[in-house]
Design a protein around this nucleic acid. Structure first.
Lengths: 333, 333
DNA sequence: TTGTACGCGTTATCAT
DNA sequence: ATGATAACGCGTACAA
């Protein structure tokens, strides 16, 4: 195995200084077309590969940190695909890590990313994240954006969708279009900010409706299995007129459980996020679409703008969710 | 903003040399307990953070490259979660990138990862990958494992599931348990290796059955929408006795389309991968389970073993798929 | 335990 | 307008 080809080798081969070779590669400096071509030819023949690590020792690196609670949840998959595509298209690479929604893991991963000198950070904070996280990031002093979830009480840059509005849309549809008089909000971690905000939107819709609607709020994990379990319990204990699920996976599980219990179509179900299978399930799932991919792209672009110096600070962005009405909210009855 | 705290600062503050400070951090050298504690105290008070980038200039770095075709496809999400968890638990970080299943993107990303000096590479090659990819990786000379897909004709280390066996299981079930006499294999890119291998398994099962079974093979994208379109066409053109879908998303789409066409339950559908929603769809999806998460963990562990020097070379691994029988293959009729 | 060369590209400064 | 010199960034590892 031959030694690594370095910039010195290229320079020597092209009969030029290391500096000039560097200028050719980065496109930074003033170099005549003639020498530029000589250098590029040398790079080609020697098979030189740029060493990003060495370069990052001087200038700010081209690596970005991305933290999500669960890399394999469909919605975060969408978010990540947006983040990743935007970064790699701009020549940056994303160090993506998953906290499994645990604070200790998150603290550990933040530290690891810091040790890896990432140029920026996009983070979907784990449930229960508090000022410890915000302080750690602020003392670190790296461009950061909170994605899809924010930390309660903090005013850090945030890219997400309007959860209050999402809850409102779902509840409003249930009470106004379907005259629901009892609604259950199902799923999500007890103190998750998305959950709390959506419930606020739900309450607002109920208040506006003027009618007397009973609201029950239940937590669960955000999986299909948890949805099935919850659906069984609801079927056994008496169904509400409508169920707003914390995400589509839960909703699909609930629908299945009700089907098994012989209650198919006997209540209205609304999911959240509008992931792929939502439109194809039976019944097709009414869902609040949040377009995770665009969220990811937006966050990534915001960070890139700051890194490049185009913007002085990361800008927050609140996307408008849309209610996609399908069969599961009652239109199939 | 104060200057970065470096190892020199720590050393000075602890009244010791840079080398000793380094030894304390890495745990490598023999340092007396007394000085170790002094150094650790200094690290604490100064708020020193290790600089992985600088360190990687000398020793091999702790960054690993991971390439998948689509970061947001459920199956790859499972794979990635296994890869990521295993690496970060061992102190490594994964640079994860998505080729969108395009060869030009893949070539570009391989180069970028190379520039980032990753210590190892796990790659799910894009459809159509050939020896250009294998050569590029070999000349690079970094520990590599092909994950879930391999390159036709190459003998590189490979961690995946036995696709031939998977195809066999699905077809065998359709012909033996359900007496199917016409089967359609639906989905996947025309020349994808998984597709070809599974078809081989299907043919083997048909041959073993002794009976005369007609096999049709159709390609499609691997999305719910593509499944819906394909299902419509099948419904219009005459249904086979059984359909083996390239993945669960397609299967869910097909089932939905047949439902819409009034053909619910009139053929048998088998999916592939057994992702979350499979068990909850209506009808519940029979599927070939491949456990992407374990595949990811296995690949990551293989790479870690080689990096650490415990193993001389990456070892291949073929996992056994399992057929999970549910309603969609005819048990609900 | 420590001194010090090393790994590799960047960039401010100097020379033509 | 072009190109070169040399200091810099930060931890690692070997010789002393």
């Amino acid at each position: 195995m031959g030694r690594r080809v370095t910039l010195i080798d290229v320079a020597r081969h092209a009969g030029v200084s290391r500096t000039t070779a560097s200028y050719v590669i980065t496109g930074t400096g003033r170099v005549s077309t003639a020498t530029r071509e000589r250098v590029q030819a040398s790079i080609e023949t020697l098979g030189y590969v740029y060493n990003e690590g060495a370069a990052a020792l001087r200038r700010t690196g081209r690596t970005i940190g991305v933290i999500v609670p669960n890399i394999d949840r469909p919605f975060f998959g969408e978010v990540l695909s947006g983040v990743e595509a935007t970064f790699t298209d701009s020549g940056y690479m994303a160090l993506m890590v998953s906290t499994r929604d645990r604070l200790d893991q998150q603290a550990r991963l933040v530290r690891m990313l810091r040790e890896h000198q990432v140029a920026a950070l996009a983070i979907v904070p784990a449930t229960g994240s508090n000022h410890d996280l915000v302080d750690a990031i602020r003392s670190w002093d790296v461009p950061t954006v909170f994605l899809s979830r924010y930390v309660a009480g903090s005013t850090e840059p945030y890219v997400g969708s309007d959860e209050v509005r999402g809850g409102y849309l779902a509840a409003d549809h249930l009470v106004r279009a379907h005259q629901c008089r009892s609604i259950t909000y199902l799923g999500g971690p007890k103190h998750g900010v998305a959950r709390i905000d959506r419930l606020e939107g739900v309450l607002r819709a109920l208040a506006e409706s003027g009618s007397d609607v009973k609201l029950v709020d239940l937590t669960s994990e955000s999986t299909v299995e948890a949805g099935i379990r919850a659906g069984r319990e609801l079927a056994a204990g008496g169904l509400p007129d409508g169920i707003i699920c914390h995400n589509d996976s839960i909703a699909i599980g609930v629908a299945r459980a009700l089907f098994d219990a012989g209650h198919a179509g006997s209540t209205r179900i609304i999911g959240y996020d509008d992931i792929g299978p939502a439109r194809a399930s039976v019944p097709a799932l009414t869902s609040v679409a949040t377009s995770g991919r665009i969220l990811g792209e937006t966050a990534a672009r915001a960070l890139l703008a700051v890194i490049s110096g185009a913007e002085p600070a990361v800008r927050s962005h609140l996307a408008e969710p849309r209610l996609i009405v399908r069969e599961s909210c009652g239109d199939h009855i």
